[in-house]
Nucleic acid binder design. Structure first.
Length: 355
DNA sequence: AATACGGGGCC
DNA sequence: GGCCCAGTATT
C-alpha cells in the first residue's frame, strides 16, 4: 500500500469529528481555514462556532460593521485576518454576486487568502487537485523524505512542495489534504511523536536515520523587541454616567482596528514623575492638570515579535476639558463591552472592575 | 528574502 | 525561555 492510501486509511479511522468537516459550504470551510491559520483547534473552535452562528452566510458577514467582526475575533490574534475576512466577504458579494468563487485562482484573489487557504478551499469544497502546505504537512513531508534543508528557505520549501505534489497525485485531494494535516496534528507531532507505533515507521527516512527529533529544520527568527507603553486611562463624567477615553489602533502597528487608551510610548521604562512633565503628556492635556488617581504596576505582555511592558495611569478630568477630544472615542463604561480590545487591555479592565 | 503580525499551550 | 500552531501581506 502506498503512502497516500495508507494515510487516507488511517484518516478514515482516526479523524476527529469537527463541524467544518460536516459541510461542503465553501463559505464555512473558508471561515474555518482563516480561523485556524497559525492557531490550534482548541483555541479557535469556539470562535468558529460563534462566527457561523452570528454570520451564517457570506452576506451576513459582508453586511456587518468591522467593529462587530473584530469584536467576535477578539482574543484570537492576528487581527488582519478578521479585517481581511470582512473585506473578502464584501468582495464575494459585490464581485462574485454572492457566490463563493469555485476555482483556485479566483479564490486566491481574495484578501487574506494565500496559497495555503486557496488550496484548502479548492480541494475540500471543489475537489480541485491542489496540495496544501501548512505546518503539519511540512513536518510530515520533511520527516518522511528526511529533508534537511531549512523548510523556511527557498530550496527547502521547493522540495516540500515537489514532494507533496508527487504524493497527492491520483488521490482525492480534499481527503488527502485533510488526512495529511490530521496526521501531522495527531501523530507526527512536533515533540515526541510516537514513532514506534507509527504506520510509516518502516518507510519514514527520518525515523530510519534517527533524524525525527531534528526535523523539520527551521531558520529561527529575530528576537522580540521591547516596547514600553504608558497608557492614560482617562475618566470623566459623573457617577451615573462614567466616561472612559478610548483610542482606535492605527494602521501599521499591532492590534490595528482594535481599541486601547491614549498612549505615551517611551524608549525605556519611565517613572510617573518624568511622564507628568513630558511633552507628550502636556500635548494631551494641554495645560490642564488632571487628577492622577492610580498608577498600576508593570504588565508584561509577550507577542511573537515584541515584548510589551505596560503601565496604566488612571486620571480624572473635568468633562469636555480636553480640546482635542475628537482624537478619542469617549465611551460610557456600560458600552465598553462593544469595543474590540486587545488581551492586555481586557486584562487591565477586568482587574480594575471595569468589565 | 526577510519581517511583522497575537495569543496560548507545552516542555 | 523557546518552540509551535490548518499563513498572509508587505517590503
Amino acid at each position: 500500500m502506498d503512502f497516500a492510501h495508507a494515510l487516507i486509511d488511517w484518516y478514515n479511522h482516526h479523524k476527529r469529528q469537527l463541524p467544518w468537516r460536516e459541510t461542503r459550504d465553501p463559505y464555512k470551510i473558508w471561515l474555518s481555514e482563516v480561523i485556524f491559520q497559525q492557531t490550534r483547534i482548541v483555541q479557535g473552535f469556539e470562535y468558529y462556532v460563534r462566527f457561523t452562528e452570528k454570520f451564517p452566510t457570506v452576506h451576513h458577514l459582508a453586511n456587518a460593521y468591522e467593529d462587530e467582526v473584530l469584536k467576535l475575533w477578539q482574543g484570537l490574534g492576528y487581527y488582519s485576518r478578521a479585517r481581511n475576512l470582512h473585506l473578502a466577504a464584501k468582495t464575494v458579494v459585490e464581485t462574485f454576486d454572492g457566490k463563493f468563487p469555485d476555482n483556485y485562482s479566483d479564490i486566491l484573489k481574495l484578501k487574506g487568502i494565500g496559497p495555503y487557504t486557496a488550496a484548502a478551499i479548492a480541494s475540500i469544497a471543489f475537489n480541485q487537485p491542489y496540495p496544501v502546505v501548512d505546518g503539519n504537512v511540512i513536518r510530515v513531508i520533511s520527516r518522511w523524505f528526511a529533508i534537511e534543508e531549512a523548510v523556511n528557505s527557498t530550496v527547502g520549501r521547493m522540495k516540500i512542495e515537489k514532494s507533496v505534489q508527487e504524493l497527492i497525485t491520483g488521490h482525492p485531494p480534499g481527503t488527502f489534504n485533510q488526512a495529511m494535516m490530521e496526521f501531522g496534528a495527531l501523530f507526527c507531532k512536533p515533540r515526541k511523536p510516537d514513532c514506534e507505533s507509527c504506520i510509516f515507521n518502516n518507510s519514514c527516512l527520518a525515523f530510519r536515520q534517527g533524524l525525527v527529533g531534528k526535523l523539520p529544520v527551521k531558520i529561527k527568527n529575530q528576537p522580540p523587541k521591547k516596547r514600553f507603553f504608558n497608557y492614560l486611562v482617562i475618566l470623566s463624567g459623573n457617577n451615573s454616567n462614567q466616561l472612559i477615553y478610548l483610542k482606535k489602533r492605527p494602521e501599521g502597528d499591532i492590534w490595528q482596528g482594535l481599541y486601547d487608551f491614549p498612549l505615551i510610548e517611551t524608549k525605556t521604562g519611565t517613572d510617573t514623575k518624568s511622564l507628568l512633565s513630558s511633552f507628550a503628556w502636556k500635548a494631551i492635556f494641554n495645560g490642564t492638570h488632571p487628577l492622577v488617581e492610580q498608577v498600576s504596576g508593570e504588565f508584561k505582555h509577550q507577542l511573537t515579535h515584541q515584548h510589551i511592558f505596560a503601565k496604566f495611569i488612571t486620571v480624572k478630568i473635568e468633562e469636555n476639558s480636553l480640546q482635542n477630544a475628537d482624537n478619542y472615542n469617549i465611551a460610557g463604561l456600560q458600552k465598553l463591552h462593544d469595543y474590540p480590545i486587545p488581551r492586555l487591555i481586557e486584562q487591565f479592565l477586568t482587574i480594575n472592575g471595569f468589565l
